[in-house]
Amino acid sequence: MTEYKLVVVGAGGVGKSALTIQLIQNHFVDEYDPTIEDSYRKQVVIDGETCLLDILDTAGQEEYSAMRDQYMRTGEGFLCVFAINNTKSFEDIHHYREQIKRVKDSEDVPMVLVGNKCDLPSRTVDTKQAQDLARSYGIPFIETSAKTRQGVDDAFYTLVREIRKHKEKMSKDGKKKKKKSKTKCVIM
């Protein structure tokens, strides 16, 4: 069974824990209790493949930012979460993405942009803004509501699919490099 290491990042209060708990335990946590770091595991079937999701729910508070490099190193894919009623959390996505790329030393890291709290009427981040940002990053965008469960499975499952595509691409690139290195030079 394939294991996928997913990391949920975003500013404090955007609903990272609520999304994760909704996926794992099928219930909505409405009281806000700032996370330092929590880890969850769940076995699911995605596109006919049974897999184990190892999900790291991270601290959004700035005082825990020193811990970010460590979990970013171990993560295979990242859910970059903002709240649709919090423009600052949307603007912060850029910083999370840049930090992930720096730590992973790669421009090509599996990510999904997630606009959470889409059940709320007080939207300050337009869907088109988020779609445009995701398009500019070359990553999928999904709106979710941890409260109603809308888009929750889709967000995590899409990230797994992005990781699969990335692994497939990397193995193809690896095979191309191996083929090239088999060419021999004969000096007579």
Rank of each mutant, 00 (worst) to 15 (best):
T2C: 12
T2E: 15
T2S: 14
T2V: 10
E3F: 07
K5H: 07
K5R: 13
L6F: 11
L6H: 02
V7S: 07
V7L: 05
V8A: 06
V8W: 00
G10C: 05
G10T: 01
A11R: 07
A11P: 10
G12A: 14
G13P: 14
G13V: 11
V14L: 10
V14P: 10
V14N: 11
G15P: 02
G15W: 01
G15V: 01
K16D: 02
K16W: 00
K16R: 04
S17D: 00
S17E: 00
A18F: 00
A18H: 04
L19W: 05
T20S: 10
T20M: 05
Q22G: 11
Q22W: 08
Q22V: 05
I24M: 15
Q25G: 15
Q25T: 15
Q25N: 15
N26C: 08
N26R: 10
H27E: 14
H27I: 15
H27T: 15
F28C: 05
F28M: 06
F28W: 12
V29P: 08
V29F: 14
D30F: 07
D30A: 09
E31D: 12
E31C: 08
Y32Q: 04
D33Y: 03
D33F: 03
T35D: 00
T35C: 00
T35Y: 00
T35L: 02
I36V: 04
I36E: 00
I36C: 02
E37C: 15
D38E: 02
D38T: 02
S39Y: 05
S39P: 03
Y40K: 00
Y40F: 03
Y40N: 00
R41E: 09
R41A: 09
R41S: 08
K42E: 09
Q43T: 12
Q43M: 08
V44W: 09
V44L: 14
V45G: 13
I46C: 11
D47P: 08
G48F: 06
G48M: 07
G48K: 11
G48C: 06
E49K: 10
E49G: 09
E49M: 09
T50G: 10
C51S: 11
C51R: 10
C51A: 09
L52G: 14
L53S: 12
L53E: 06
L53F: 12
L53N: 11
D54F: 06
D54Y: 10
I55R: 01
I55E: 03
I55Y: 05
L56M: 08
D57C: 00
D57L: 02
D57E: 04
T58H: 00
T58I: 03
T58F: 01
A59S: 14
A59N: 04
A59T: 08
G60I: 02
G60F: 01
G60S: 05
Q61N: 14
Q61F: 06
Q61R: 08
Q61H: 12
E62A: 08
E62W: 05
E63S: 06
E63N: 07
E63Y: 05
E63I: 04
E63T: 06
